[in-house]
Design a protein around this nucleic acid. Structure first.
Length: 276
DNA sequence: AGGAAAACCTGCGTGC
DNA sequence: TGCACGCAGGTTTTCC
């Protein structure tokens, strides 16, 4: 479900909840069905007693930084977190119980209907399976560096630029919604062969990549269907979508109907007139 | 070897 | 109403 802007907002909300109060993990309760991948009870046990120092993000992964370990969480398509819910509901899978020195309690609950999400635990970031094969962070890299990197990555690729842009080795955090939006803003047709992009086009792509994602982060991400960052907080970037989910509706720039096609099994939205 | 397709799941909207 | 079908924001595996 979530791409970089949505995960970034979950991270922000979780840290707000923590408020640097140094919560110590007291218990991890498994209350639902198994996820695609999750640590053993013994691995979870190794986190007990450790303080949660904060939550970071790398690519679309949330990183819960404990004193001597990192708990990585992918939200998959439908994962979400709740803080201190009244009770357990359908599709809740893990409950993390914390306490701090003021004797404040905090309960974080992971809910995931489709169960595509997962957890990993390791001592260091480098040892996490999911940390491998990741390209640069789009919002924390210099445009010139991103351009050089993408130009090299796209070179000799026969794949279409939309699928290539979603490859985490190109740049991390771009999923199906923002790939379409970014290409629209860059004026590049999603079917375009990645290896045939001119350097000016890659430059525009980098500009759009950063401006679209930055704006989406600032607006709390896109809430289509049911994405909520934490405690039912909604994003509103969906109101800024120019193409995604707008098949046959008029283009906001030129008025011609937005087109929908399928690439590598994923829906792509684009404007035939505005994108070349 | 690169890239497409399938697989992993549940839920919801649509159309018959 | 009920049922079949298609589709959904990700990642990993399989297949060609």
């Amino acid at each position: 479900m979530p791409e970089l802007p949505e995960v970034e907002n979950v991270k922000i909300q979780l840290n707000k909840k923590l408020q640097d109060l140094r919560f110590q993990l007291m218990a991890v309760e498994w209350v639902g069905k198994p996820l695609r991948k999750s640590p053993s009870a013994q691995e979870f046990h190794s986190l007990l007693g450790q303080k949660l120092l904060g939550v970071s993000r790398r690519a679309k992964y949330l990183l819960f930084r404990f004193e001597t370990s990192i708990l990585l969480n992918s939200l998959g398509m439908s994962g979400s977190w709740k803080a201190n819910p009244q009770s357990t509901v359908l599709h809740d899978h893990f409950v993390f119980k914390f306490k701090n020195t003021n004797s404040d309690f905090l309960k974080l609950v992971y809910n995931d209907p489709r169960r595509f999400g997962f957890f990993e635990i390791h001592k260091t970031w480098q040892h996490l399976e999911s940390a491998k094969n990741l390209g640069p962070e789009p919002l924390e890299s210099e445009p010139a560096f991103l351009q050089k990197h993408l130009q090299k990555f796209f070179k000799a690729k026969t794949q279409n630029v939309k699928s290539a842009l979603m490859n985490p080795l190109a740049v991390v955090g771009v999923g199906n919604i923002y790939a379409s939006e970014i290409l629209f803003h860059a004026g590049i047709r999603p079917q375009k062969n990645a290896g045939r992009l001119k350097s000016k086009q890659v430059q525009r792509l980098v500009q759009s990549l950063q401006s679209v994602l930055r704006e989406a982060v600032d607006r709390g991400g896109s809430t289509i269907r049911d994405f909520k960052s934490l405690d039912s907080i909604l994003g509103n970037y969906q109101d800024q979508h120019f193409v995604y989910g707008r098949a046959s509706k008029p283009c906001r720039i030129c008025g011609s109907p937005i087109r929908k096609t399928v690439q590598a099994g994923r829906s792509t939205f684009w404007c035939q007139h505005c994108q070349k």
